[in-house]
């Protein structure tokens, strides 16, 4: 009997540890995405955590990064297509654009000219941005897809792979 109780306790403890570990902040799929709190072009701070409840694509980009610039039109299509959709892991789709630009005018002009209508934030610190370090970004473009609880679902998907992944979460 004692052995049975001990075994159950060990199993419970193990399960608790594994749950805690799965919820830990990190950069692996299944980890909780690290918080980001950065200003928009107008200066208001928008926290990544404020988007809780939605499926969110964190898009790291810059106006000086040509593949990132090319990708913005695809993101616009995805945003328009899925903004109001209901997913198995989020109600609505949001893009949280984090720019590694250094010059505010370049960043602002691009957003205005290209009519980007999703959230855009930046500390204008180029590669010295603490966010680049936190997310261990090795190059641009880079993105992270997170669920309604901020857990990482996928990393660095682009083009058709990104669209397929988002589409796969649609609630049927």
């Amino acid at each position: 009997m004692r052995t049975l109780i001990l075994s159950v306790l060990i199993l419970l403890f193990g399960s608790m540890i594994s749950t805690l570990s799965a919820q830990s902040t990190g950069l692996e799929i299944g980890n909780k995405a690290p918080e980001i709190r950065l200003p928009t072009t107008k200066g208001d701070t928008v926290a990544l955590s404020s988007l809780k409840g939605k499926l969110v694509l964190i898009d790291f980009w810059a106006t000086w990064c040509s593949p990132c610039v090319e990708e913005q039109s695809q993101l616009a299509k995805l945003y328009s297509k899925y903004k109001q959709s209901v997913f198995t892991n989020g109600k609505g789709f949001e893009i949280y654009g984090v720019s590694l630009d250094a010059k505010k005018s370049n960043w602002e002009n691009f957003i205005r000219t290209n009519k980007i209508n999703w959230i855009q934030v930046s500390d204008l610190k180029f590669w010295r941005s603490p966010v680049a370090k936190t997310y261990n970004i090795q190059g641009l473009p880079f993105n992270v897809l997170i669920d309604d609880n901020g857990m990482i679902l996928a990393k660095n998907l682009h083009g058709i792979d990104l669209e397929k992944q988002i589409g796969s979460f649609l609630k049927k």
């Binding site: 590669w127 010295r128 680049a132 370090k133 970004i137 090795q138 190059g139």
Partner: peptide, 15 residues
């Protein structure tokens, strides 16, 4: 080869 973050900042060189 990659960028100034990977090849300079991350290596702890003077910034």
């Amino acid at each position: 080869p990659q960028n100034v973050k990977v090849d300079w900042i991350d290596k702890g060189y003077p910034v």
